[in-house]
Computed example of a mutant assay.
Amino acid sequence: MTDISILDLVRIREGGDARRALDCARDLARHAEAWGYRRFWMAEHHNMSGIASAATSVAIGHVAAGTSTIRVGAGGVMLPNHSPLVIAEQFGTLEALFPGRIDLGLGRAPGTDQLTLRALRRSPSSADSFPQDVLELQAYLGPVMEGQRIRAVPGANSNVPLWILGSSTFGATLAAQLGLPYAFASHFAPDALDLALDVYRAHFQPSGQQQAPHAMAGVNIIAADTDDEARRLATTQQMSVTDIFRGTRGLSHPPIDDIDDYWTPTEKIQAQRMLACSIVGSPATVARGIEQFLQRTRADELMIVSDVFDHQKRLHSYRLIAELFKA
Score class of each variant (00 low, 15 high):
68 S>F: 08
22 L>S: 00
138 Q>K: 10
176 A>F: 06
192 A>S: 13
294 L>E: 05
224 A>G: 08
276 A>R: 14
208 G>R: 07
101 R>Q: 09
225 D>M: 04
280 V>L: 09
23 D>H: 11
68 S>T: 15
117 L>R: 07
57 S>V: 05
122 R>L: 08
291 E>G: 11
282 S>Y: 06
228 D>K: 13
305 V>S: 09
131 P>Y: 03
242 T>G: 15
178 L>A: 04
156 A>W: 06
62 H>Y: 14
176 A>R: 03
42 M>P: 01
52 A>V: 00
113 D>R: 11
258 D>E: 09
297 T>L: 07
301 E>L: 02
87 I>E: 06
62 H>S: 13
46 H>E: 01
152 A>I: 03
301 E>R: 03
268 K>N: 10
76 G>D: 10
219 V>C: 11
53 S>A: 08
69 T>Q: 14
281 G>S: 08
116 T>F: 13
61 G>Q: 09
198 D>A: 15
256 I>G: 08
243 D>W: 07
255 P>N: 09
281 G>N: 04
272 Q>E: 15
98 F>L: 07
26 R>P: 03
142 G>T: 04
101 R>K: 06
245 F>M: 11
28 L>R: 00
25 A>K: 00
43 A>T: 15
234 A>V: 03
317 S>H: 04
260 D>I: 11
183 A>N: 10
324 L>N: 06
256 I>H: 03
15 G>A: 06
315 L>K: 07
110 P>C: 06
39 R>W: 05
41 W>I: 01
121 R>T: 15
88 A>D: 08
282 S>A: 15
77 V>D: 01
49 S>K: 14
239 M>K: 12
230 A>D: 05
327 A>D: 15
238 Q>A: 11
236 T>N: 03
39 R>S: 05
